[in-house]
């Protein structure tokens, strides 16, 4: 009961955020990249609902734009990284033997190399392009999931119905697709949803340091960085961006955890 309630709460929150992010710009009188030379660092007013930034941008419009960027990056990264994890994990787990050892050794190597540091290191080469940030983040987020998928696939390999399929003469790729992957579907869905929040935090963390999304484009990270200096005096630019970020992450993790409990009652709660 509480399980599904948690998932529903997350889903509702997320739907609200999506509605705000995609419908907000339509109703807002200001575009995100427009500058109002008459109002710098203004408080909320009828014209600027949440005030303006130091450079005269409309806080409401620019923050929604930033949230849109962050959300899209988060979704794309999660889908790609979970996809890589599923592919590597099932192949390693089902094949076993040398292929398994080689793949897992590679995974270990990538785990030892702190992913965030590597992304920081490579980020300057991106020249601010969000599309390139996506594969970079995805490439360093899939390893832990891959390990879990591998362990599960390896245990499924000796499950009797998988053995039965093998002894019926069903080939390995077909066994993986028909019998192994469907069992992991719930894990993968949950993992992908939790990865969305990890990816959004990672993206905004990078952007906060000036290493992710870069001007003229904005993300929640850059907005928080810009707003933080003046946060005490004019709280809106910082507060709205930070609040939206927290809300998104909270909604996604509620949804992910709720889904996990609904789909897989045997598992505990956190990763």
């Amino acid at each position: 009961m509480t399980r599904s309630r948690r998932a529903v709460a997350g889903l509702v929150l997320l739907a609200l955020v999506f509605a705000l992010v995609f419908a907000g710009p339509v109703v807002s009188p200001w575009s995100w990249d427009g500058t109002d030379f008459a109002a710098f660092r203004a408080g909320p007013s009828a014209e600027h609902w949440l005030g303006t930034t130091e450079s005269g941008r409309d806080v409401f419009a620019v923050t929604l734009r930033g949230a849109r960027t962050s959300l899209l990056i988060g979704l794309a990264v999660a889908v790609i990284s979970t996809g890589i994890a599923a592919a590597v994990g099932t192949v390693a787990g089902y094949a076993g033997g040398r292929l398994d050892r080689t793949l897992m050794w590679g995974v270990d190597l990538l785990i030892v190399l702190p992913p965030f540091l590597v992304v920081v290191l490579l980020a300057p080469r991106l020249d601010g392009g969000a599309p390139l940030l996506v594969p970079l983040l995805a490439a360093f987020m899939w390893m832990i999931t891959a390990r879990m998928v591998r362990a599960l696939s390896a245990s499924l390999r000796d499950r009797e119905y998988v053995l039965a399929a093998r002894f019926l003469g069903v080939g390995a790729p077909r066994v993986i697709v028909r019998h192994v992957l469907p069992q992991l579907a719930s894990l993968l869905v949950v993992d992908a949803s939790l990865n969305v929040s990890v990816a959004i935090v990672a993206e905004s963390g990078l952007s906060y340091l000036g290493l992710g999304v870069r001007p003229p484009d904005v993300s929640l990270g850059t907005l928080i960085a810009d707003g933080h200096g003046a946060a005490a005096a004019s709280p809106w630019p910082f507060g709205f961006a930070a609040g939206l970020l927290v809300l998104i992450v909270l909604a996604v993790s509620l949804l992910g955890d709720g889904l996990r409990d609904v789909l897989d009652p045997t598992s505990g709660g956190a990763r």
């Binding site: 119905y161 053995l163 039965a164 002894f167 003469g169």
Partner: peptide, 22 residues
């Protein structure tokens, strides 16, 4: 070998574990 699999088949102990639950 694939052809011969038609002639040799197996039934396992746990009836539920040997059928794909999905």
């Amino acid at each position: 070998r694939r052809a011969l699999r038609r002639d040799v088949q197996v039934v396992f102990q746990d009836p539920y574990a040997s059928l794909d639950p999905r």
